[in-house]
């Protein structure tokens, strides 16, 4: 049996309590929500906190309420609850869809939105047991000095593998963080770093308390996921596309794109926005040519490394296909409206 290392488990009831516990535990303390990322990692000795502080009992970190026309989601909502929440399904179906593509139904019953957005980056030199990593010598993400994927690289290229994070970045969601110094709000895009080790701009003691989704007014989004199997598997490519349709005269919209964002998951250490791809769509009505241009723009910077499932050159090729398909679906949704 692969077992957890020993640690102290704390179950605070309030945010203040949680912050105080974390302050006490210092660098040896970590938060946990559903545990579906942290516990496997601890069993493989990627993280070895002496104190684990559960956020699941904290009042106010669950649920979902509408505010200013937008929606604020509690990070401790499980992915299953998120998928089935009426507000999310009605106004943010792409969030529900991405969450519904995470892993398996059983994991979604446990895993939370917050955990998904803070998910550790992945690499198949890293997501291995201690003994395996020892056999090739440890890499810089844990216990070592070199990167086995790119041995001359000064940085770690572990992959951002969250399904929901690219959608949040594409939507322009905002994260509310609470730390010892109080509350701050960061746009989703600025929550992530393109570095496999320091992949979050969040301080270790900060707690993600709310995820604010923009009001649903004239935008639409679609998420497509590539993986080997339709269950269990992390994305080797996630494509989140978002468009703001131009407002037309009065209520009628013209069917032209005012602004667009294309964010790729699984190809970098953060959800990778490709501004050129979004720019290629502005002012168009998602014609075949516009889609091809955007797909081409998204293809160029996508830089998969040899550290996930599938051959990397094929994964890069697939960026074009998946971006095109996601945009085509946006266009279909538009005309079906």
């Amino acid at each position: 049996m692969l077992r957890l290392p020993s640690f102290t488990y704390l179950q605070p009831r309030t945010l203040e309590e949680a912050l105080a516990m974390k302050a006490d535990a210092g660098a040896e303390g970590m938060y946990v929500a559903g545990g579906t990322d942290l516990y496997p990692n601890m069993k493989r000795r990627h993280q070895e906190p002496r104190t684990v502080i559960s956020l699941m009992g904290i009042r106010g970190l669950g649920g979902c309420e509408t505010r200013d026309g937008g929606c604020a989601v509690g990070p401790c909502m499980t992915l299953t609850d998120l998928c089935s929440h009426p507000t999310i399904r009605q106004h943010y179906d792409t969030v529900a869809q991405a969450a519904g593509l995470v892993s398996t139904p059983l994991l979604r019953n446990m895993g939370t939105l917050g955990g998904n957005l803070c998910l550790d980056t992945r690499c198949n030199y890293y997501n291995q047991t201690y003994e395996w990593r020892q056999a090739i010598d440890f890499c810089m993400k844990k216990d070592g000095h070199i990167c086995w994927v790119a041995p001359s690289s000064p940085r770690c290229w572990a992959v951002s593998s969250s399904d929901v994070a690219p959608v949040m970045v594409a939507l322009g969601a905002e994260y509310v963080l609470v730390g010892p110094g109080g509350e701050r709000v960061v746009p989703a895009a600025r929550f992530y770093h393109n570095d496999g080790i320091n992949y979050l701009t969040k301080q270790p003691d900060e707690i993600l308390c709310r995820v604010r989704l923009p009001r649903p007014d004239g935008w639409d989004a679609v998420y497509h996921k590539l993986r080997r199997r339709d269950s269990f598997d992390f994305p080797v490519l996630g494509v989140a596309t978002w468009v703001q349709w131009q407002p037309g005269n009065g209520k009628r919209e013209t069917g032209r794109v005012a602004e667009a964002r294309i964010v790729l998951g699984g190809v970098a250490s953060w959800p990778q926005e490709v501004p050129e791809a979004g720019a290629a769509l502005a002012g168009t009505s998602l014609s075949d040519e516009a889609i091809a241009a955007a797909a081409d723009a998204a293809y160029r910077p996508a830089k998969p490394m040899d550290n996930t499932d599938f051959d990397l050159s094929w994964r890069k090729q697939m960026t074009r296909v998946y971006v095109s398909r996601a945009l085509a679906e946006l266009r279909r949704r538009r005309s079906a409206r």
């Binding site: 198949n124 291995q128 395996w132 090739i136 199997r229 339709d230 269950s231 269990f232 499932d309």
Partner: peptide
């Protein structure tokens, strides 16, 4: 090239078809 380690000795990365495949 890396000590001939097994690339993926896990149930996640050794791909066994699920109900959906």
């Amino acid at each position: 090239n890396r000590n001939v380690v097994h690339k993926i000795p896990s149930l996640l990365e050794y791909k066994s078809p699920t109900t959906l495949e």
